[in-house]
């Protein structure tokens, strides 16, 4: 049941982030109702979720009847009506991710924190949400960490194992600066290697890359056509060390 409105917000008192957003896009639309969904999303970035009062104020700002605002909020799953933890853990459980082990991640989260889907963990850090296909089906299981703040800051975390997921959650809870950095998952010899170089399929918590490894140990270089790993040793020394250690075993 929706709660009774406790305190009305005057549309003029909405934060500048929201009013500026509306001013910025108004010229692109023939009427103000079209801005409703983007504005609600912007309000959610500011407040963390959309309360009835905020929805009412936005309705007044955009001259949309409250009933229609409520209908939209009710329809779209990304507009949250309840508060969340500092990080929203959006876990995909469509087939590819289910096959890749999404259920184990979900079970682990619930066992670790004793909180189900949509609930806030005791430390206020996390809320697990099951989301539909994130279109990252080649990296299952895939999830997106969304950090609340003035803007939602997204970080993809893919190809996860339960151990890596656990480590990332612990690092985030401990406030470690590089908690969401790219991590090494596994490495495989590549079939159909195009030449005689040391081609491997490198899987990290961001993506999968066909790569060539040159040298070994500290001097190892990771070469990919994209140049993403051009200066891996300096850009992400932790990942470089993880890959170097795994390359030894390969």
């Amino acid at each position: 049941m929706p709660e009774l409105h406790t305190k009305d917000i005057n549309p003029a008192e909405l934060p500048k982030q929201i009013t500026d957003f509306v001013k910025g896009i108004a010229s692109q639309y023939p009427n103000s109702k079209a801005m409703l969904i983007p504005t609600l999303i912007e309000a959610q970035k500011y407040y963390g979720h959309v309360t009835d009062e905020v929805a009412m104020a936005i309705g007044k700002l955009l001259k949309v009847p409250y009933g229609e605002v409520e209908a939209v909020i009710d329809f779209y799953t990304m507009i949250l009506q309840k508060p969340t933890g500092e990080y929203i853990v959006g876990l995909c459980d469509t087939w590819n991710c289910e096959w890749g082990g999404a259920a184990a991640l979900k079970e682990h989260f619930i066992a670790k924190y004793g909180k189900g889907v949509g609930e806030i963990t005791a430390d206020g850090k996390f809320t697990l949400l099951m989301v539909e296909c994130l279109c990252d089906c080649h990296n299952p299981p895939s999830l997106q960490f969304l950090q609340r703040g003035e803007h939602f800051t997204p970080t993809w975390s893919n190809n996860l194992t339960v151990e890596l997921f656990d480590a990332i959650l612990d690092d985030l809870a401990a406030g470690k600066a590089d908690a969401l950095r790219e991590r090494f998952v596994r490495m495989e010899k590549k079939q159909n290697a195009p030449d005689d170089r040391n081609w491997v399929w490198l899987v990290t918590t961001r993506n999968q890359y066909p790569c060539v490894l040159e040298g070994s140990g500290d001097a190892m270089k990771v070469i990919d056509g994209f140049g993403k790993f051009g200066d891996l040793k300096n850009d992400n020394p932790a990942l470089h060390a993880e890959i170097a250690a795994a390359a030894k075993e390969l």
Partner: peptide, 12 residues
């Protein structure tokens, strides 16, 4: 010519 990026909100 104008171009506006419009966000959806989670509906397939």
């Amino acid at each position: 010519m104008h171009f506006q990026v419009h966000t959806g909100a989670g509906a397939y």
